[in-house]
């Protein structure tokens, strides 16, 4: 597939995530939209790694170029899993304190 299809698909998914972060007030939905943006970037990294492999294959048939990109995606998934556990713990603590997941209640820094 041409690489620009993957680029535009990832851009569209990323922008949907951004619109979700900007238009919703529920903290959990905002968190899910961040996961969506991470996945859009992962998809583009995998597509680019396959593109890099295709160009390197022309010079050398036994190349392993492109492995780095896929391992980078793997590490992004690892970090995202750790981030989700801490983030959801923070949201649970916030719910325990203010009995809501509305991010507009958390404006004490504004005043």
């Amino acid at each position: 597939m041409p690489i620009n299809y993957y680029i535009f698909l990832s851009i569209a998914l990323f922008c949907i995530g951004i619109v979700g972060v900007l238009t919703r007030r529920n903290a959990i939905i905002i968190f899910m939209c961040i996961e969506l943006m991470l996945n859009a970037v992962n998809l583009l990294l995998v597509a680019f790694s396959k593109m890099h492999h295709a160009t390197a294959l022309a010079a050398d048939t036994a190349t392993t170029a492109g492995t780095d990109g896929q391992l980078f995606v793997f590490f992004i998934m690892v970090v995202a899993a750790a981030e989700v556990s801490v983030g959801l713990a923070i949201i649970v603590m916030m719910y325990r304190n203010i009995h809501s997941v509305d991010v507009n209640f958390l404006n004490r820094l504004k005043h």
């Binding site: 597939m1 041409p2 690489i3 620009n4 993957y6 680029i7 597509a47 680019f48 396959k50 593109m51 492999h53 295709a54 160009t55 294959l57």
Partner: peptide, 9 residues
């Protein structure tokens, strides 16, 4: 320039 290339499927 990049869209002259393609990802191998």
């Amino acid at each position: 320039e990049v869209h002259l290339q393609s990802a191998e499927v």
